[in-house]
Design a protein around this nucleic acid. Sequence first.
DNA 1: CCGTGGACACGAAAGCGATTCGTGTCTAAC
DNA 2: GTTAGACACGAATCGCTTTCGTGTCCACGG
Lengths: 192, 192
Amino acid sequence: MPARTFADRTRDLVRDEALERAAELLVAGGWRGLRLQDVAEGIGVSRQTLYNEFASKQGLAAALVLRRTEEFLAGLEAALDGEDDVYRAWVEAVRTTLDTVARDPLLRVLLTGQGAEDLLPLLTSEAEPLITAARDRAAAFLQRRRPELDAATASAAAEIAARLTISHVVLPLHAPDVVADQIATAVVRFLM
Amino acid sequence: MPARTFADRTRDLVRDEALERAAELLVAGGWRGLRLQDVAEGIGVSRQTLYNEFASKQGLAAALVLRRTEEFLAGLEAALDGEDDVYRAWVEAVRTTLDTVARDPLLRVLLTGQGAEDLLPLLTSEAEPLITAARDRAAAFLQRRRPELDAATASAAAEIAARLTISHVVLPLHAPDVVADQIATAVVRFLM
DNA sequence: CCGTGGACACGAAAGCGATTCGTGTCTAAC
DNA sequence: GTTAGACACGAATCGCTTTCGTGTCCACGG
């Protein structure tokens, strides 16, 4: 049981607001345009406090990436678990992913690594892990629903879905509904 | 019957050598580092001759893209038609594509649009068409082999294969053989 | 005749100091 | 424990000059 003192709670509050504000400024002006001064002023603390909390600008970025990653994976898992049928579950997961990425440039960079000249310098070490993380969570979902599947098949199907989804983010040619149906169909048929 | 005069043949020879030399210099030094002067000296003609033949630096790039595209598509089609079984044909097509792209940076740019800051400024108008062209040729192959397929299904299967292949070019996680098997499997199962 | 080499204007890029800006650290004060 | 202020240091920016490459023209020569 965590002994959360008052100091702990204010600390978390600062982290929350700082990351939120940093995300806004980051997508607005890029990595280079992000100044710690602005983040501090934006939430009403001193610049020094941010250094106490995140150690450096890179540290803040790392915390930001960590948070967005977890949010995305949680949303993905919720979409998958929200439906009984595997096909419909996957349709929902793809659709929400497309939707989320469409309105969040930061997530797009984290997932695809596209147009990152100015956004997040740590994409090289974070873009690939996020994709494999998404694949692994989706594979786990598959094995939860279809316990008879072997791990390799589930992982392969999940990876196909992840790669196709990202591909359609990078190069959209069809409506999201059509894409979601195609990917979900490919997955269920791949599973025999 | 084309009346190919001597002038026509020397003209084609100049085009061939110029495009070949330009491709080398392009992948070596990028678009900005490519000087028409060097191309001309490299094949022993004057700079003016290149302008007579390609009109501009952009014109040379366009001709280069056109040629590489056709070479790639011809190789793809040859790989597909080289096998009787659809699964094995697709394994070969994916494998040769991965192989070709691995050793040709220019093709990689044309197919993926990755790392094109300096290579080919016309990727915006050429990268997407090449992908759809590959999809359409692969779909045509499918309908040749399985005449009972409707156009939409064949096109969808071909697009899935194209997108997956490109995805594995951009972010390779497995050995080419494994990838080729997975993609070919996905295609044949997608076709019921 | 068609290719060549030289000449040219024009805009883009490179080189180069002087200067501003932001990070990261420290300290005195509340 | 947070804050405002000061600081060094490296990176980015500015204004300027100079170089470079494109695209075009023309007189010459095999």
